[in-house]
Structures are given as structure tokens and as C-alpha cells.
Design a protein around this nucleic acid. Structure first.
Lengths: 198, 198
DNA sequence: GGTGTTTGCCTAAAGGCTGTAGGCAGATTC
DNA sequence: GAATCTGCCTACAGCCTTTAGGCAAACACC
């Protein structure tokens, strides 16, 4: 019986490809085994279980994304950097929808802390050096950017903006204009309404 | 054999509760049958299949969300309306995480067009009447708000902001301040960089 | 190059979920 | 009360997950 040369890494990479082809939630130990022309049970020497496979794919996607983000930000600042980072997320999601979905997998806190997720936060913070924001506004801005990028990409991929003018590229450009303007002119907090002011 | 009185509606509502308890992707025909103390095969008289069940739960969630949004917007304008709408999404996601996840299910175009999804777009547009935006900026703004609300809520629920100061309520308030400021002062498009401007 | 050990993929099997087909017994109708 | 309809049942087939135990290829060492 010829050996297939399985390793956790090869399985993870193949799983990521499979995710991009058929969707992250269609990634199954059985389908992956089929791709290697091997019985499903054989994968359990390399993977703990099905969840382990999904987690590995998620971690791979987070790494790839962080690598791309780091490349994109190198040598850029201000709006240029903002656009570059935003496009990294959007382009990655378009090129690798399954991997992008994987990157949204909820990780347990320990795994998340050891993942490339922390690099993403650091990179976004680096981007904000081009704008003049102190704490805690910088943290708020990191979260705003993360929310908007992720929200936009996930709605666009899910077809939420389809069948309507104007096209999504124009909206994307204008949203980046808007975020840039906002970061250059971050508003002071408004006074909360008092409780008895009906 | 006592009859359980199953209907598609009762199954959908129970499915939504199940989703909130165990997560939307754990909602299965088997688990739902168990909850009614009935065999799984019996549900197939009322549901076409497992996907049909998930779609019905998604449509229910979209309706509930649109109803809440309509209530929240009634009699409010400007920042007050913006905050109210945003809180509808965030609160719904917190109270009903499974339903909220269901509302993100990708629907086929015909189903989506007949769903309460269109009410959401209309309501957001109504909210923007309090700001002075013509087309196509209004559409861009609808998409920005949708993206930011959804992105924030989904990152917060997924634990993306956990274990870090400042707390998420403060960020949420400041993001709403920021969006309000942005809508009151929507920037003109920036000129695109020409290709040879390195 | 033989021998022993490790390692990789195998078969077997149990358990769960989806979905179809056909049956029987309450509920409904006249 | 009889006939019909409807709702839930059993049985079964197919696929996925996961564990247990086996055999043979690869490696390590003399």
C-alpha cells in the first residue's frame, strides 16, 4: 500500500483549497480524505478531529491575511495606507472566500491569543499612526475600522448589495473617503442625554 | 399515537429558540424532532428539508428585526434615530444570537427579494432623511451603516474585542458619535490617484 | 543485508443526521 | 357509522465522524 505522505500541514493547505472551492462549512474530513485518495479514518492520525481541521484552516487564513496586510502597509501612510489595508481584506475575501470565512471562526481565547489575530490589531494600530489619535480614541478607531471592513466584505460577499446601483466599487471608494475624513477629524464625545430628558 | 400538532410555523419558532440556545449551525431536523418528542422523519411533512428549516428561521429573524427597527425609528430623527436603530441590531444579536446568525444566511435572490430584508434597507434610508444626503451618497451611506453595524455586532459577538480596555459600550457610543458626525458632514469624493503617480 | 521498531494507512464498526417510502391509526366529513 | 384524509410512525439507505485494532512499508541499527 503506497503511502500518501499526509501531514497536518498538507491537510490544512488542501482543506483551505477545498474551502475556497466548496465553502468553508462544506469542508469535511471525508471530503478531504477523498481528495487524497485515502480513507477518512486515516486522517485522524494527523488531525484530532473535524473541529481541529477547521481551526487549522482558520489559523492559516489569519496568517496569510496578516502577511498580506504587513506587505500592503510597508511604506504607506495616511489614506494610502488605509486604502491598501482595506483592499487586502476585500481582495482576500474575493480570492479566497472559504479561507475568509474560516478566518471568522470563533477561536477559544488561548488559541486566539496565539494566532495571527493579534498581528491584525497591531497593524491597524500602526496604520493609525498616520492620523493623530490618542488613547482611547485609537482603540475605538481600530474597532471601527475592523467592524466596517469586515461588515462590508461580509455583506458584499453574501450578496447583500447585489442587484442595485450604484456599483459596489464606488461605494467602497466612498466609504474609504468617509473613513479617512473621519479619522482626520475624529469627533469629541457627545454628552450623554440625562435620564429625565424625555 | 397522540398527535403532536406540528406545523411549519411552530417548527420555525422552536427552531429559532433552539438556534439561540445551541447556535444556528447546530440546528438540525433531528434535534428539533427531539424537542417535540417526535421522530425526525415526521418533520418532513412540514418542512421540505433541512435547508428549508434554516431559511424559515432566517426569514423569521429578518421579520423580527425589521419590526423592532420600525418601532425604534418611529418618532425619532437624527442622532437619536441613528442610535436607536444601531441598538436594535446590537440588542437583538445579544438577546438572540442564533436568530441573528440566521439572519445572515445567504438567501437565493427570489427569497431575499420577498423577505423583510428590503424593509431594512428602506428603514435605513428613512433614518437618513434626518441628514442631508442626495443620491448616490444616500446609498453609499446605507451600505456604510449596514456594514458597520453588522461588522461591529458580529466581531463583538465573536469575541473579537474581548479582554481589552476600553469596554465595548464606550466604543459603541463613540462609533455612533463618529457616524453621526460623518453623516452630518459627508465628504466629497477625492480625486482618484492617476496611474503614473508613484 | 537482516532484524526490530516505528509509523502510516487500512478494515471494521458504532452512532448520528438527512431524506424517502410505505403503513396505520386518529381526525374529519358526510 | 363509513369513507377519506392527514399526521406521525417504522424501516431503510446513504453519508459523515470517530475509535479500535491490524498489517505492511519505512527506518534504524548492527
Amino acid at each position: 500500500m503506497a503511502r500518501a505522505g499526509l501531514t497536518a500541514e498538507r491537510l490544512t493547505r488542501a482543506g483551505a483549497e477545498l474551502a475556497d472551492e466548496v465553502g468553508f462549512d462544506q469542508v469535511t474530513v471525508s471530503a478531504l480524505a477523498r481528495r487524497f485518495d485515502v480513507k477518512a479514518a486515516s486522517l485522524y492520525s494527523h488531525l484530532e478531529n473535524s473541529q481541529d481541521l477547521r481551526t487549522r484552516i482558520a489559523l492559516l487564513a489569519l496568517e496569510e491575511l496578516a502577511d498580506r496586510a504587513a506587505d500592503a502597509l510597508a511604506g504607506r501612510a495616511g489614506k494610502d495606507a488605509l486604502t491598501a489595508l482595506a483592499d487586502v481584506y476585500r481582495d482576500y475575501a474575493r480570492e479566497h472566500p472559504g479561507r475568509y470565512a474560516a478566518a471568522q471562526l470563533r477561536l477559544d481565547p488561548a488559541t486566539a491569543a496565539a494566532s495571527a489575530g493579534v498581528r491584525h490589531a497591531r497593524l491597524t494600530r500602526a496604520l493609525l499612526r498616520g492620523y493623530e489619535l490618542g488613547e482611547p480614541d485609537q482603540t475605538h478607531a481600530v474597532r471601527l475600522l475592523g467592524s466596517t471592513f469586515h461588515g462590508y466584505v461580509s455583506l458584499e460577499m453574501g450578496g447583500g448589495f447585489s442587484h442595485s446601483a450604484p456599483d459596489t466599487q464606488e461605494t467602497w471608494d466612498r466609504i474609504l473617503d468617509a473613513l479617512d475624513a473621519l479619522l482626520r477629524n475624529w469627533p469629541a464625545p457627545t454628552a450623554p442625554l440625562s435620564d429625565d430628558a424625555h
